[in-house]
Nucleic acid binder design. Structure first.
Lengths: 167, 167
DNA sequence: CATATTGTTCAATATGTACTGAACGAACTG
DNA sequence: CAGTTCGTTCAGTACATATTGAACAATATG
């Protein structure tokens, strides 16, 4: 099934992501970049995973939006190189937190829709929403904690000025 | 779109569950039972949600396995009545925790597969697994805290009888 | 300008699985 | 025993969406 340990890791992370309701390829890309020491181009990733460049393009940007991958621009190079962020834990938790908070808001809004005549339902729904909200708070707090513990990155995008001066 | 606030809640929870990679109907059933003061029969639930009894049967038992619903047996009554557990938060967190722990185990195992000659990869993968494991610990701890804070049920709803083998 | 390379967009397809209907078994009644 | 009612199982279908191929835009070179 798995030829190499690399592939095993890539496929496992892909399956885990899929089980969480995400595209499998997104997880595979992340795993691929985590294993790689150097940033990889879109084409390299696509070939490694045996998928289309279109998928990689879409999903690597989704990962970027979640704060899990970064583009590494090289001066004088048009090509986009991608790397996994050094400590993805904080971003992962923060993404979860945001989802929870959105859910909390939606549910709380519904709780308000229940008039005072349905006090019982209103309370139960509100309680449900509160749970989501406190979960969001909790996860966010934890993410902060992790990010503090980990060597902090500056938010500025990393630029390799590895310019080889052409003759 | 939504006729009643009840339906709005039911559909919203269904969508949230679906976004998490679960069957939508499972979330709808849970929402339905949360809104209901009295336990509901399988047929009632099916009619309320406009879905087949087969789906309700399957999903309500999935919810039970996760500790979110309970069967209420009545003496001299063959019919199964279902209710949502009083405080589903703990069970929700515990289910998440278990998923995280399974993921952690799988990843750690892969980390071991990397020989010492691939120290860099081994470390990165192990770190990844550790994150999942500490997340699992964290969630479980929190679940305990919530369950302690909430009025304890007299009947212990332990679902942990299933021995968790790593294999 | 033409040509080459790279990344994105989007309609079409492939794929997984949620959901259903029908058949079945179990538990009760008369 | 035959006749109901209820829950589960399972093969088949429907449906959502992940993924692709091709067209396109953008950027560079000469």
């Amino acid at each position: 099934m798995h030829d190499t340990t690399d592939e095993k890791f890539i496929e496992t992370i892909g399956l885990i992501w899929q089980a969480e309701g995400n595209p499998r390829i997104a997880g595979q890309i992340l795993a691929c970049l985590i294993l790689s020491d150097d940033p990889r181009s879109l084409s390299e990733i696509a070939e490694t995973l045996g998928v289309s460049k279109a998928s990689v393009s879409t999903n690597v940007r989704m990962l970027e939006a979640r704060g899990l991958t970064e583009k590494v621009s090289r001066v004088g190079q048009r090509i986009d190189l991608w790397k996994a962020v050094p400590h993805p834990q904080g971003a992962t938790l923060r993404a979860m937190s945001q989802r929870f908070r959105r859910n909390a808001d939606r549910i709380t809004e519904i709780a308000h829709d229940f008039g005072p005549e349905a006090r019982g339902k209103q309370d139960k729904v509100a309680q449900f929403g509160d749970f989501y909200r406190s979960s969001a708070d909790f996860l966010e707090q934890w993410a902060d904690q992790l990010d503090k513990a980990a060597p902090a990155r500056t938010t500025a995008p990393h630029i390799e000025d590895e310019t080889e001066n052409h003759g």
